[in-house]
C-alpha cells in the first residue's frame, strides 16, 4: 500500500489520473473501517486532508458550493438556514466524533444506499462537481447514483464539491434506526418544499438499491397542491392527500430484508416519515405564509 499526500487539488487530480485505483480518504469514516477489518487493501491511499479548499463552502445567490470534505458538524452549525434538510441529515450521522470528520463527498463517493446525506441532496436538488485532469463537470444528483455502492464517477475523477440549491421553503429529514443515536439508517426520508417553483421534492434512503426520489408521489402531490390552491390559500393538507402521498412514497421503495430491518418495515416506515415530514414542512410553510399575509 502506498500513501499519497497531494498538497493541492491539481496534485490530487494528477495522482488520481496516474493511479485510478487510488482510494481517496478524507474523513476516513468508511475507508478506515474497511482497512481495519481487512475488507479492503487498496494499492494507493490518497489523503485529501491537505487540500484546504475541500473543507470550505461558499454561499451563492441560488446555491451553496459545499466542499467535498466539509465535515457534517460544520454543516449543522453554519448552513442550517441555507441547507436545512442537509443540516438535519447531518445531525443524524453517527456520532459527534464522526460528524467532526465525515463529509458529503465521502457519502457520495461510497454511494451506499444508507448514506445519510443522499435523501437531503435529492430533495433539495444538487449537482456533484466532479473533476479529473480531463476537465470538470457537474453531475445532477438524480443521475449520480448508478447502483448499489456505485456512482457516475469515472475512475480518474474526484469529487471536489457539491452544489446544493439554497432552500426556498421548509425542508425536513427523518431517519429510522433501531437506536436513538449512532445508528445506520434502516431507511430515511428527505422532503423539501420549493414554493418558488411550487414543487415538492423527495429523497428516500436505504429502501432501494440506490437513493431514490419518489417521482410519482412528487407528481401526485404537486398536482394536488396546485389543484387545491394550497400554495396560495395555505390550508392544511387534507389527510387523504397526505395519505396518498405517503402510500406513493412507500411504493417508490424497492427494499430488501437485511439485518437492519425487513423490506416490509422499510416500506411502511417510509410512508410514515413521508406523511410526518410533509405535515411538518407544510405547517412550517403555512406559518410563514400566515406571517407574510399578516404583514401584507
Amino acid at each position: 500500500m502506498d500513501f499519497l499526500r497531494p498538497a493541492s487539488w491539481e496534485e490530487a487530480l494528477a495522482a488520481k489520473a496516474e493511479h485510478p485505483t487510488a482510494v481517496p480518504i478524507a474523513g476516513g469514516t468508511d475507508v478506515m473501517v474497511e482497512i481495519n477489518f481487512d475488507h479492503r487493501r487498496p494499492e494507493y491511499l490518497m489523503d485529501l486532508n491537505r487540500i484546504a479548499d475541500l473543507e470550505e463552502w461558499e454561499v451563492g445567490e441560488k446555491s451553496v458550493r459545499l466542499g467535498a470534505s466539509v465535515p457534517y458538524a460544520k454543516i449543522m452549525e453554519h448552513l442550517r438556514a441555507e441547507l436545512p434538510g442537509l443540516a438535519l441529515a447531518s445531525h443524524t450521522v453517527a456520532s459527534p466524533q464522526i460528524r467532526n470528520r465525515g463529509g458529503v463527498g465521502g457519502n457520495l463517493g461510497t454511494a451506499s444506499p444508507a448514506g445519510d446525506a443522499h435523501p437531503a441532496l435529492l430533495a433539495a436538488g444538487a449537482e456533484v462537481e466532479a473533476e479529473s485532469v480531463r476537465g470538470s463537470r457537474r453531475i445532477p444528483i438524480d443521475d449520480f447514483y448508478t447502483g448499489v455502492k456505485r456512482n457516475a464517477l469515472a475512475p480518474d475523477e474526484l469529487i471536489r464539491a457539491v452544489h446544493i440549491k439554497k432552500a426556498d421553503g421548509p425542508q425536513q429529514y427523518s431517519k429510522v434506526g433501531t437506536r436513538n443515536a449512532m445508528v445506520i439508517a434502516v431507511c430515511a426520508f428527505g422532503l423539501a418544499l420549493h414554493p418558488a417553483t411550487r414543487t415538492v421534492r423527495t429523497g428516500i434512503g436505504s429502501a432501494a438499491p440506490t437513493p431514490v426520489r419518489a417521482g410519482t408521489a412528487e407528481e401526485f402531490l404537486n398536482a394536488a397542491l396546485e389543484e387545491g390552491g394550497f400554495w396560495d390559500n395555505g390550508k392544511i393538507i387534507t389527510p387523504s392527500v397526505a395519505k396518498r402521498f405517503a402510500d406513493l412514497c412507500a411504493a417508490a421503495c424497492n427494499p430488501i430484508d437485511d439485518v437492519r430491518g425487513t423490506a416490509s418495515y422499510r416500506r411502511h416506515a417510509v410512508g410514515v416519515m413521508a406523511r410526518r415530514t410533509l405535515t411538518w414542512t407544510w405547517e412550517s410553510y403555512r406559518g410563514a405564509h400566515r406571517t407574510t399575509e399578516g404583514a401584507a
Binding site: 500513501f3 499526500r5 480518504i25 474523513g27 476516513g28 469514516t29 475507508v31 478506515m32 473501517v33 482497512i35 481495519n36 491511499l45 489523503d47 486532508n49 456520532s95 459527534p96 466524533q97 464522526i98 467532526n100 470528520r101
Partner: peptide, 20 residues
C-alpha cells in the same frame, strides 16, 4: 477518541499518514 487539531475524532478512523 482523541483531539485532532482540537477536534474530537475517533483515532481508529484517522489513517496514520493523515496525522502528519
Amino acid at each position: 477518541t482523541v483531539r485532532l487539531d482540537g477536534v474530537p475524532v475517533c483515532s481508529c478512523l484517522v489513517a496514520a499518514g493523515q496525522a502528519e
